[in-house]
C-alpha cells in the first residue's frame, strides 16, 4: 500500500462524499423544516437520474447540462408531493407521515419499473474515460464534475438560506411556525417550496452521478441509506452538518475500502454512525432541540 494508493482512495472518497452531501442536504432540509422523514428521497434522486438519462439519450443533452432541466422537474414534483399529499396530513401523528413517504417511494420505484423496466441503464458520455492526472494519481473527470456540481448547489442552497428573505422565512418557519404565521409568512407555502428545494437537491445529485452510475428503479436506496447516516452524523436539520457529514462518510468509506474487502468498506462509516448515536446523538452540528 503506497502513498499514491492512499491518496487516490481518499480523493475518490472525497469526490463521492460531495454527492452524499448533496443528497443529505435535501433530506436534512425537509426534516429540519417540516419534521418529515422523507423516505421517498431516494426515489426522487432516481427520478433525477432518469431525467438525465432520457435527456441524454433522446435529446442528446449533456448530463451536466441536464441539471437545468432536472431542477425545475424535481422542484415541481417535490412541491406537488408536499402540497397535495403531505399538507393534508401535517397534523397527523408522525408515523402516518412516515407511511406516506414510504408509500410514495414504493409507488415511484414501481412506476419506474413499469415505465422503464427494471434493467440497468448506463449513460455513456464522450468523456467517460477522461482522467485528470496529477503525478501518479488519476482522477475521473466525471467524478470531479459531480463533486463540483454538488459543491455549487450546496453553496447556492446555503446562500439562499442565509442571505435571502425566502431563506430566512424558511428558517423562521422551521423554528417557530406560529411566530412565522403571525408575521404574515404563509407557512404552508414555505413548506412546499422547501420540499421542492429538497427534491431538487436529490435530483441534481442524481444528474451528477448518472454518468458514472447505472440507472435503475431502486438505485436511490443506495445513496439514501448513506444520506440518512450523513444526516444523523451532521445533526438532524443542519445544512452545514449534512455538508461536512457527507465528506466525512465519503472519506470513511475510502479508508474502509483500503483496509477491508470491498463489500465491507462501509464498516468504518457504520462504526462512526453508531458512535455518534451513542455519544453525541444530536450530531456534530446539531442543536439541542
Amino acid at each position: 500500500m503506497n502513498i499514491y494508493y492512499i491518496l487516490q482512495s481518499l480523493i475518490d472518497g472525497l469526490l463521492i462524499g460531495g454527492v452524499y452531501s448533496l443528497v443529505a442536504i435535501g433530506l436534512t432540509l425537509i426534516f429540519g423544516v417540516m419534521r418529515i422523514v422523507n423516505f421517498a428521497h431516494g426515489a426522487l434522486m432516481m427520478l433525477g437520474m432518469y431525467t438525465t438519462y432520457w435527456a441524454f439519450n433522446l435529446l442528446h443533452i449533456d448530463p451536466y447540462l441536464s441539471i437545468l432541466i432536472c431542477v425545475p422537474v424535481l422542484f415541481i414534483i417535490g412541491a406537488a408531493f408536499q402540497k397535495f399529499l403531505i399538507t393534508p396530513i401535517l397534523d397527523a401523528p408522525e408515523h402516518n407521515q412516515l407511511l406516506l413517504t414510504l408509500g410514495v417511494s414504493l409507488f415511484l420505484e414501481n412506476l419506474a419499473v413499469f415505465l422503464w423496466s427494471p434493467n440497468y441503464r448506463v449513460t455513456r458520455t464522450s468523456y467517460e474515460f477522461a482522467y485528470l492526472y496529477i503525478g501518479d494519481l488519476s482522477i475521473s473527470l466525471q467524478r470531479v464534475l459531480a463533486f463540483l456540481t454538488a459543491m455549487v448547489v450546496t453553496g447556492i442552497v446555503y446562500f439562499l438560506l442565509s442571505k435571502t428573505d425566502l431563506g430566512k422565512a424558511i428558517r423562521a418557519a422551521s423554528e417557530e411556525p406560529r411566530g412565522a404565521l403571525l408575521m404574515g409568512i404563509n407557512v404552508r407555502r414555505i413548506y412546499w417550496i422547501t420540499f421542492g428545494i429538497g427534491a431538487a437537491c436529490a435530483g441534481v445529485a442524481g444528474s451528477a452521478t448518472a454518468p458514472f452510475f447505472p440507472v435503475y428503479p431502486t438505485v436511490g436506496g443506495i445513496f439514501v441509506i448513506t444520506a440518512f447516516m450523513v444526516v444523523v452524523l451532521g445533526g438532524m436539520g443542519s445544512v452545514l452538518g449534512a455538508f461536512a457529514g457527507g465528506l466525512i462518510i465519503g472519506l470513511a468509506d475510502a479508508v474502509g475500502g483500503m483496509i477491508f474487502p470491498g463489500a465491507m468498506k462501509s464498516i468504518i462509516s457504520f462504526i462512526l454512525f453508531i458512535l455518534i448515536l451513542l455519544f453525541k446523538p444530536t450530531g456534530l452540528f446539531g442543536s439541542k432541540n
Partner: peptide, 8 residues
Amino acid sequence: GRCVFPSL
C-alpha cells in the same frame, strides 16, 4: 411567549 426565531 414571544415566538421569536431563536437561531436568527
